[in-house]
């Protein structure tokens, strides 16, 4: 309120209004004579400043768009070269330096899918059940407030710390050389659980209470109400939350670098041996740098920048994955929120 009154003083002193107007607090619904601010009243100084801020704000939009356009351009332009059916259906086994055949990302794709599936198996039940507890059963009791705080703490865990945790857990039982796909899944699930809990909570809260009450009124037990009434109603929302949390962790490199390692060939076993994943593949290809094509004794095709090409193509594939997951997730979410009249 003091801001409005000080504004009034500024307005008067800057403009020297000729007419007397009652500047009453409109919030209190007192009668006041309104003045329509005509352009004559606003001084040039104020108008210039307003335009200046308008330019700045438009500029901030441009500033944000430039990196986006740049990133999309470089990923698409560099990535399209290697995206061939061969690239998507072959591993890197047998690939030598910069020589053809140039290999592919099949092992990384399968690895990402398997590790993410593992993370989903761990985090979806826990996430959904906990959210059900927080929304349906616990109304502000001690356990729920503790869990709420802990979920917030968990959502702040940096991804590399989650990786260290998974590594140290498995290292304790299997020694310091423990490298498994499931270790990566555990690290990713630490990142997924808070997101799933929060989004499921949000969706369960959106289910109108009348539905629950109607169900209780018919004599249905709480358990059956949740399973048969609440969950099906919130189902698409929960799925959306899961999709969005997958989109969040599928691009995580750091925890997988520490836990699942990297390998050239296909590994279908989460519980034994290293497993390649898309983000680790990208980093691997980047860090191995240029290939040597100067001594071409094989006579085969050789590309010295093949590794960067593969990295960009893999990045494009990963990017497309994430975009699709995010787009599907957010559009369904927006539709649900609109339906529930939020």
């Amino acid at each position: 309120m003091s801001k409005i009154s000080s504004f009034r003083v500024n307005l008067l002193s800057k403009n020297g209004l000729k007419s007397k107007v009652l500047f009453k607090n409109i919030k209190n619904n007192r009668l006041s004579k309104f003045i329509k601010p005509s352009s004559r009243v606003i001084s040039r100084q104020r108008r210039q400043f307003d335009n200046f801020m308008k330019v700045l704000i438009f500029l901030s939009f441009i500033i944000v768009s430039i990196p986006l356009v740049s990133i999309i351009y470089i990923v698409v332009a560099n990535g399209l070269t290697q995206i061939t059916p061969y690239f998507l259906t072959h591993t890197m086994k047998g690939v030598m330096g910069g020589f053809s055949p140039f290999g592919g990302i099949l092992h990384a794709l399968v690895g990402t899918i398997l590790i993410t599936l593992g993370a989903m198996v761990i985090s979806i039940p826990i996430g959904i059940l906990t959210a059900i507890y927080l929304v349906e059963y616990a109304k502000g009791n001690k356990l729920s407030s503790i869990v709420n705080t802990l979920v917030d703490i968990m959502s702040g865990v940096p991804s590399i710390v989650a990786g260290l945790f998974a590594y140290s857990l498995f290292a304790l039982f299997f020694g310091p050389t423990a490298v498994f796909g499931i270790s990566g899944s555990l690290a990713l699930s630490v990142l997924m659980i808070p997101t799933i809990i929060r989004s499921t909570q949000e969706m369960l809260n959106l289910v109108p209470n009348q539905l629950r009450e109607a169900s209780y009124g018919l004599g249905v037990s709480k358990f059956r109400t949740i399973i048969k009434v609440v969950l099906p109603t919130a189902f698409s929302g929960i799925v959306t939350g899961v999709l969005l949390s997958i989109a969040r962790v599928i691009g995580e490199t750091a925890p997988l670098l520490l836990t699942a390692g990297s390998i050239d060939s296909l590994n279908l076993n989460l519980f034994s041996g290293r497993m390649m994943s898309l983000p680790v593949y990208i980093y691997n290809e980047y860090s191995q740098g240029l290939a040597v094509c100067t001594n071409n004794i094989f006579g085969a095709d050789c590309l010295s920048d093949i590794r960067m090409q593969r990295a960009w193509s893999a990045a494009l594939v990963l990017f497309i994955f994430i975009i699709i997951l995010n787009l599907v997730g957010t559009t369904i979410k927006k539709r649900i929120l609109k339906k529930r009249g939020k």
Binding site: T130, Y137, L143, M154, V157, S221, K222
Partner: peptide
């Protein structure tokens, strides 16, 4: 009460346990 309540309670406790485990394992390591 019914077993489902126990299940969801256990699940919430599990979240507690996970966070506890993270701290413990990191400290241990």
């Amino acid at each position: 009460t019914d077993k489902f309540y126990l299940l969801v309670c256990a699940s919430s406790l599990f979240v507690l346990i996970i966070l506890f485990a993270i701290t413990v394992f990191l400290l241990f390591s």
